[in-house]
Design a binder for these strands. Structure first.
Lengths: 240, 240
DNA sequence: CGATGACTTGACTGAGTTCAAAAGCTGTGG
DNA sequence: CCACAGCTTTTGAACTCAGTCAAGTCATCG
């Protein structure tokens, strides 16, 4: 019970996987959790000689990177607060999960978590459902990359991030008004997400600025002046 | 036991999900299965007013199609014999699964199968693992579409199909020799898989023919004359 | 302040799209 | 058996969007 007290105050307590568990399972989970701060750039799983771990993101963004034989990186997924990060039942993961920003996570050792999944079907079921959602998301992204123009891709990603990030700060403004936040990704990373070159991304930002739809601030600051217009450029929204 | 006799003769018996189950669960599954022949073009799940069903492919190929708002189709996955087709825990599926060729499947009603998953953890675990594999596959495809050239994409898809299809006919020739089979997809469908136009696909076929790497026969016949060369054009192989 | 790294801008190129027409297959009916 | 319709596939030619290469600007920090 004392263990779960911390969870009562958790900022993602009602959307994270743990919220879908029975009280008993949640207690067991709380017993093996390690709350951690992780600096930008650190690997969560994958790569060489990396001990298997699972995490639930409390704060920050994780990028799933596929390193190509030619050395280029493709970002194949982004994980936001409340989402589960890890690849159960795999020895050598083909992807690398890396902190795109500084993180706050609930981390679990691979063996402890997998054991708990074996004995608690509700935990396994929850992670299974999240995996199915991730699969739908990955396939939507694939469609986007395959068919959309550079402008549509950039607008789509900005809309996605705006909904995840700006959303919590200014829910009221989500439908029409302005929205301001810091991008969790560099231009290079945005390009790696969208299957574009960073110069192309930069030009699309310039075009959106010229149309008065966005403004860029210092560092990674972004202000979306016209969310509706941005949504139109995106030609259909992505979930996750 | 009589029920499971049919399974003893099944062509995918040692790679399908059912092979990973305990005898008891396999018996339960056999009790609710319907062996079906499905004509090319029929929808397995998704779309409007479609009763939820799950299938294991015995023969043929299923394409997972994402219908875009603008009417174009993106194929986001292919499923081959022994693979599981279905989307558990979803009301309205965002994708449509359609028979790319005539099929032979083991079909299960949605409710019966999901009930069985609830009560038999080994079944749920097996499908969970397949889903994780599908997720890895989807992400690899995404990388391919985002970064590879038209030639590399076409070669990659042909290699994938060659391994799945030609493989069973001529295992011996897989490493170096020639390989002949019928493509399960039209030019249009290949284009929809790869994020290309059908004209571009046709031109890449022409180029591969000119180099003596492949020959096309009547209908959808394809002969891979130089598997090694085709693999080189693919610049890295895809699984599934 | 000069150095380093992230971003922007410009000019040119080229792979893939687009539009259009021709060529192959398959099946049907006289 | 041929002629014709309805397909899919191939080929051609012009165009365009995004990639490439190369400067140039801006921000942050020792």
């Amino acid at each position: 019970m004392t263990l779960r007290n911390r969870c009562q105050l958790c900022s993602v307590r009602d959307c994270a996987p743990c919220s879908e568990l029975t009280a008993g399972t949640a207690d067991e989970l709380a017993r093996i959790v390690h709350r951690r701060r992780i600096p930008m750039g650190q690997i969560l799983y994958g790569g060489v000689n990396q001990a298997k771990t699972f995490s639930i993101i409390v704060e920050g963004v994780v990028k799933l990177v596929n390193v190509q034989p030619d050395g280029s990186n493709q970002i194949v997924g982004l994980q936001f607060p409340s989402e589960f990060v890890g690849r159960p039942f795999a020895e050598g993961a083909p992807m690398v999960a890396e902190a795109a920003t500084d993180l706050e996570v609930c981390a679990f050792s691979g063996s402890a978590f997998e054991t708990l999944m074996q004995t608690h079907p509700d935990l396994e079921r929850t992670i299974f459902k999240r995996t199915l959602d991730d699969l739908d998301t990955a396939r939507q992204w694939m469609s986007m990359i395959a068919r959309k123009t550079a402008e549509e891709r950039v607008a789509s990603l900005l809309m996605l991030i705006a909904r995840k990030f700006g959303g919590k700060a200014e829910m009221a403004g989500l439908t029409s008004g302005a929205l301001e936040f810091n991008l969790p990704l560099s231009r290079t990373e945005i390009a790696e997400c969208l299957g574009l070159r960073l110069e192309t991304v930069s030009r699309q930002f310039a075009a959106l600025k010229a149309e008065g739809i966005i403004t860029t601030g210092r560092r990674r600051g972004l202000k979306v002046a016209d969310l509706t217009a941005l949504g139109q450029r995106a030609q259909g929204l992505l979930h996750a």
